[in-house]
Design a binder for these strands. Structure first.
Length: 286
DNA sequence: CCGTTAACCTGAGAGC
DNA sequence: TGCTCTCAGGTTAACG
């Protein structure tokens, strides 16, 4: 589900709610996520202070005291929910408000006293991973390519990733080892703005096209963040609000519809590239 | 090393 | 109503 913009939206709201707070309790309902959560996971992070929250590509990085790092990847269907505690009048009982919380697949509950953060993930492609040093965090991040907002993400970097490559440009944009943070929606959108056919091989990408990808990868992702991400079916921020960038899609999910470029009368095509649907304008993207 | 495919999971929606 | 089929914002082991 979530690509860089959606993860950024989730990260921002987490920053507003749990940064500089202590994790009081962690309750694992189902440890079988993409990677199995170890038995001692809860014990290790309970009572630790969250010193900072940041993001790299599609990873949320929760920094804890004493150089511990909790990495959260939302996979395809992971969502985090903020659930507030209410005190029932005339009794000592307290309970957690569950208005927008899904009924099934709530796997991890992190308690902060007056509220909880709950991880829900029907498909269980997401994961929580704990790292215990700055070194292991750096190693983990460096296994990925640079994200478009990285200082070192420049023309030279992209040219080196494209040249001599047989792989088509759509798959290159999706390959997190080459470029990280872009997923299936934004790959199609970026290629449309860059006027590049998704089937074009990396080695055939011109200098002008490389510059366009450099420019529009940043521009499209930035704009999507500004609009709160894209909600196709179920992306929500932790307060259950949807994003609105889907209203600005140029090609994604627009098969049979007219190309939105002025003066173009072509119809948006859908093709499967490595089992992922890919949308483009045959006339505008060469 | 490079590139492609199948597999991991559940649920929604379409077609019959 | 129910069955079968396809598809979904991601990643990666296995294979040629």
């Amino acid at each position: 589900m979530p690509e860089l913009p959606e993860v950024e939206i989730v990260k921002r709201s987490l920053k507003n709610t749990i940064e500089l707070r202590k994790i009081k309790k962690v309750d694992i309902k189902n440890r079988n996520l993409r990677f199995k959560i170890q038995k001692n996971f809860s014990k290790k992070i309970q009572n630790k202070l969250i010193t900072n929250i940041r993001r790299y590509a599609k990873y949320i990085i929760i920094e804890l005291e004493n150089s511990w790092y909790l990495i959260i990847h939302l996979g395809m269907s992971g969502t985090l929910h903020l659930v507030k505690k209410k005190i029932k009048k005339n009794t000592n009982l307290s309970f957690y408000q569950v208005k927008n919380l899904p009924k099934k697949h709530n796997h991890i509950i992190m308690s902060f006293g007056s509220f909880q953060i709950i991880y829900n993930d029907p498909r269980r492609f997401g994961y929580f991973k704990l790292l215990n040093s700055k070194k292991s965090l750096n190693k983990f991040i460096s296994k990925n390519g640079l994200e478009p907002f990285d200082k070192k993400f420049n023309f030279e970097y992209l040219r080196n990733k494209f040249k001599n490559r047989e792989k088509n440009i759509k798959n290159i944009l999706l390959d997190q080892k080459l470029i990280s943070g872009i997923g299936n929606i934004y790959a199609s959108e970026i290629l449309f703005y860059s006027k590049i056919n998704p089937f074009k091989k990396g080695k055939e990408i011109s200098q002008i096209s490389t510059l366009n990808i450099l420019k529009y990868s940043k521009k499209v992702l930035k704009r999507a963040i500004k609009k709160g991400g894209s909600t196709i079916r179920d992306f929500k921020n932790i307060k259950s609000n949807s994003g609105t960038y889907q209203n600005e899609f140029k090609v994604y999910d627009r098969q049979y519809k007219k190309c939105l470029n002025r003066g173009c009368d072509s119809i948006i095509q859908k093709a499967m590239i490595s089992n992922r649907s890919t949308y483009y304008c045959q006339k505008c993207q060469k």
